[in-house]
Write a protein that binds this DNA or RNA. Structure first.
Lengths: 123, 123
DNA sequence: TACGGGACTGCCCACCCGGGCAGTTTCGCA
DNA sequence: TGCGAAACTGCCCGGGTGGGCAGTCCCGTA
């Protein structure tokens, strides 16, 4: 290592579509200053392209349900959510029930995880 | 647009480190077949590099805590976790308590959200 | 006008969760 | 050899959670 210049940038790939992954690997392999990570290597950045066909059905949640869901993701209890939204605890439970139903979740933790997975909310 | 050949691959950048972002933008800008997305454009893939300085202290979780955390993220109840790990419910609660403590969470839902945010687990 | 869906509220109940207290064993390290 | 950390278990309890049943408003649509 003679140069004290900028080292190579190591990139890792997380791409569902094998065709796209291959094209990108070829293109990026010819760029000086870049390098693809070997398996297990720590990368400076990751190129991500998740297959959108995995979750085509963006679940139809009402605005109120989204409000409740967002607060659930913050770890808020039903009581806290009720206070923040200015509604009763019973109504919160009503919305939570709908969310568990629509998200096919077993509990509020599962609901938040499912929602995050399919991009309904951002953690 | 004369060619019917493979279209350009559009990449978007989500990079916290402005230096790294700039270097990547320059490098990728010179690659034929690639193009960086204009703001708001739908990209085929995203290059992500989250600033590790935001979470330098990779929280020291024990293996057992990671086991419990993973099952929590699946929406499993304490009873379910106990069954799966072959330990008592009381022990599960013990580990959950440690997790809430270490992750500075108010409850299991919050713990899973925090852990996902800082990359301790993958949803 | 009648109907349905969304939002909201109440009461009741079984169960779960979080936390405190107290104790055991095992393992590695000083 | 002693000491701490990790893992494990027990009991108790207050409050939270999920779900069922029932009912009221409002609004858009048939």
């Amino acid at each position: 290592m003679s140069e004290a210049t900028t080292p190579e940038i190591v990139l890792s790939l997380e791409i569902d579509d094998p065709v796209l992954a291959d094209r990108l690997a070829v293109l990026l392999g010819n760029v000086t200053g870049l390098r693809l990570a070997v398996p297990g290597e720590q990368a400076a950045a990751t190129i991500i392209a998740r297959d959108p066909r995995g979750m085509p059905d963006d679940i139809a949640l009402t605005q109120r349900e989204l409000d409740v869901l967002a607060l659930m993701a913050e770890g808020a209890s039903n009581k806290m959510i009720a206070r923040r939204l200015g509604i009763s605890v019973h109504t919160v439970k009503f919305h939570v029930g709908s969310l568990l139903d629509k998200l096919d979740a077993t509990g509020r933790t599962d609901a938040v995880a499912h929602a995050a997975r399919r991009g309904v909310i951002e953690l």
